[in-house]
């Protein structure tokens, strides 16, 4: 319930309309959006119970490893009611053809795979926000100083998920396991997204804000 309370509000893209080239406009809008989402995500992380008590170094390590998984989960959750479109933002839907022409086709297909998986599971908002916090706590960063406190955070979140499932989804005793078993595909999808944006950065055609570049460096 606390995580639902601190869940950030809707986010809107701000396309640069005098960019003539449709593909450049998509990628530029996407990169600007991701930079704003990163600011929101860092602010959100501070409200995840148990995160702010970690050392600053460990907070950075978890965010540097998990940020793309957190962003991907947001896009996937927003896209659940869509029909093969990605709701990157409330006012920014990406269909297959737009992704193909802007070089994002592979990312589109792996993201839709994850959308389908969560749609089949009928993941609800409480589960989505808990999984997002778990992605943060379970980011397998190699530069954690105090592993005990990170494991403790993971255990608290796992407990919250189990309590929730026991109360709200008693019909399926394996539901928390089903949700945890989506995390590997989430990790794989996020890695594909990081690869895609590293490539976009290498091509150097799209302006990218410093925070976005810094977080890409960290991956």
């Amino acid at each position: 319930s606390h995580l639902v309370l601190v869940e950030p509000g809707e986010i809107f893209a701000s396309p640069d309309l005098d960019l003539q080239d449709g593909d450049l406009r998509i990628l530029t809008t996407l990169c600007e959006l991701i930079n704003r989402e990163l600011l929101v995500t860092i602010g959100w992380a501070k409200h995840v119970p148990g995160f702010s008590v970690l050392s600053l170094v460990d907070q950075m390590a978890l965010l540097q490893s998990a940020w793309m998984e957190i962003l991907v989960l947001g896009i996937v959750y927003r896209s659940l009611p869509m029909n093969d479109e990605l709701a990157v933002a409330e006012n920014f839907l990406l269909g297959r053809e737009q992704c193909r022409s802007s070089g994002l086709l592979n990312l589109h297909s792996v993201l839709l795979q994850l959308v389908r998986k969560y749609r089949k599971t009928k993941v609800d908002k409480e589960e989505f926000v808990t999984l997002k916090a778990m992605a943060l706590a379970n980011s397998d960063s190699s530069s954690i100083e105090n592993m005990e406190s990170v494991l403790h955070l993971q255990d608290r979140l796992h407990e919250a998920l189990q309590d929730y499932e026991r109360e709200q989804h008693s019909e399926d005793p394996h539901r928390s396991g089903k949700l945890l078993m989506t995390l590997p595909l989430l990790r794989q999808t996020a890695n594909e997204a990081v690869r895609t944006f590293c490539q976009i950065r290498l091509e150097g055609r799209i302006p990218m804000h410093k925070l976005f570049l810094e977080m890409l460096d960290a991956k």
Binding site: K46, L56, M60, L63, Q64, K210, L211, E214, A218
Partner: peptide, 15 residues
């Protein structure tokens, strides 16, 4: 630390 200046600053200052 130096390389990740912005993240460090964002986490350090309050809300």
């Amino acid at each position: 630390q130096e390389k990740h200046r912005i993240l460090h600053k964002l986490l350090q200052n309050g809300n």
